[in-house]
Design a protein around this nucleic acid. Sequence first.
DNA 1: TCGGCGCCATGATGCAGATCAACAGAGGTC
DNA 2: GACCTCTGTTGATCTGCATCATGGCGCCGA
Lengths: 266, 266
Amino acid sequence: MLYTLQRIYVQGETMSGHLQNLSETAPFRSCNHEFKVSCETCRLSRICLPLALNSTDLEQLENIIQRSKPLQKNELLCHEGAPFQSIYAVRSGAMKAYRTTSDGREQVTGFYFPGEILGMDGISESAHASSARALETSAICAIPFDSLEKLSALMPGLQRHLFQLLSREITEDQLLITLLSKNSADERVATLLLSISRRNARRQLSASQFRLPMSRVDIGNYLGLTVETISRAFSRMQKSGILRVDNKEIEILNHEALQLAANIPA
Amino acid sequence: MLYTLQRIYVQGETMSGHLQNLSETAPFRSCNHEFKVSCETCRLSRICLPLALNSTDLEQLENIIQRSKPLQKNELLCHEGAPFQSIYAVRSGAMKAYRTTSDGREQVTGFYFPGEILGMDGISESAHASSARALETSAICAIPFDSLEKLSALMPGLQRHLFQLLSREITEDQLLITLLSKNSADERVATLLLSISRRNARRQLSASQFRLPMSRVDIGNYLGLTVETISRAFSRMQKSGILRVDNKEIEILNHEALQLAANIPA
DNA sequence: TCGGCGCCATGATGCAGATCAACAGAGGTC
DNA sequence: GACCTCTGTTGATCTGCATCATGGCGCCGA
C-alpha cells in the first residue's frame, strides 16, 4: 500500500499543542473536561468519525474535539451565514438542518441522528450554508475544521474518511432530489420512515418501533409537502395495516408493504 | 502559517512515477499525448481545479491528469455502479449527470459546463453513484482520485480546494432540493436560466444570450416537471417579454424581470 | 381547575401541473 | 424531393396535493 509508505506521524507535544487551542464555536466555550467522553469509549465510535483510525491517530483526533453541555430542545447549534469553524457530530438526541429561502421560509435539508456528521456544507464558503437546531435534548461534538484538515493531511485514513463523508452527503442529497422530483406523497413518507428505521438499526436500536423526534411540520417541510398531507399519509398507512401510529410513536407492522409503498421493488 | 511548515514536497521521479500509471478509466486508455493541453495554458485554469496551486504544485497535478479524445454527443462518460476511479473536469462542451431510480426512470441531478467538476459522488462507495453523458461534443479531463488524494495530502491548498469542491456540490444540491420543494414551475425554470447565465458569465461568455445544450426533456427531468410544463413556461416568459426563445437559443431580454420570476428579491 | 396554545387529524374545495392528444418544424436518410 | 423520426408546442381534461376550515387532544402555567 502506497498509503502506509507516505504516512507521517508528528510527535505528540508539537502537533497537538498547536491543534488544541484553535478555533472555538459559540456554545463550545465552556470547560471541556466537564463533558469529557472519549471517542474510544463512545459507543458510536464505530459509525462516527473515528471509524478508520488506529489508537495513536485516535488520540490526536480526540485532542481537537470539543464537547460542551447538551443543547436543549429547539436550541440553535449554528446559524447560516455565521463563520464556519467546525463540523458537528451528534452524540445523542437528534438535529435538523435547514436553510432559509430568499422569501424567508425554511427548507429542512436533513435530519441527523447519533453518529452522524453535519455542517459540512459550510466548508466551501467559510460560512455555514445551513442552520442546525436540536429536535430534542442533544449532545454534540464540535470538530474544528482547520485542525481536522491539518490532521487529515497527516492521516491518509482520516482524509479518505472525510472525503467519503462529504461524498455520502452528496449522494444522500441526490436521493432526496430524486424523491422530491419523482415520488408521490405516500412514497416520500414511506421512504423517510424506512430511512429512519435503517439508521436506528445501525445504532442497534429497533428498526420497527421508534419515536419520531421531529414534528409533522418538519417532516412536511423536508419532504416538500404540507402537514395535512403528512397526516393523511400516516392515517392511510395505519388504515392499510402497514403502520401503527400514535402521535410520534411509530411501529412498522409490515416492512415489505412499507417498502412497496416507498416504491422500492422487492 | 502552520500550513507551510507542514508542507512536504516529494521530488519528481519517485512520486510522479508512482502517480502516473495508476487507475485508468475506460475512455481514457488512448494515448495521452495526442490530446495534451496543459492546465497552465488552459483558459479554464482560473475556475477549475488548478485554481489554488503554484506552478510547482501545478506540474505535479498535471502529471496525473488524463486527457483523451472528445466524447461525442450522447456518449457515456461513466455509468452508475461502475468502479469509481476518477473525477472529471469538463474542458469543453456540456455534460449531464443522472441516476436511475429503482423503477428504471432517470433523474437528472446536474448539468456541468467547462471548468466544472463532476463524479465526486462516487467517492463514498468506491462506485459511481450517478452516470454522466455528453450533451454535445465534449472534452473531459479525468483525474484519478487516489492519485489526487495522495497529492492533496502533500499540498494543503489542493486538499482545501477539494474539500471546498465537495462542499459546494452539497450546497448546490441543497439549493436544488429547496427549488423542487418550494418553487413553482416558472420559478424553477427562471432559476435554471439564471444559473446558466451566471455560469456563462464566469467563463467570459454572454450572460444574456446562449444556446441551451440540453433538451426540454432533460430540463423537465432536472426540475421535476414535464416537458409540456417547461415548454409552456418558456412560452409564457417569451410572451411577457422576459425572454426571446428560439428552440435552444435563449436571449434574456429583461434580467431583473427574470430574477423576479425566479422569486429572487431585488 | 381552567383556559390558552401548540400539535395533529380530517373534511370540503380549488388549482397547478400531469396526462392525453394532436400537430408543427427540424434534421437525417434514402 | 419524399419520407421518417425526434423534439418541441399548444390545447383539453384530469388529479394529487395545497389550501381553508374545524375540532380534538395533550401540555403548561395561572
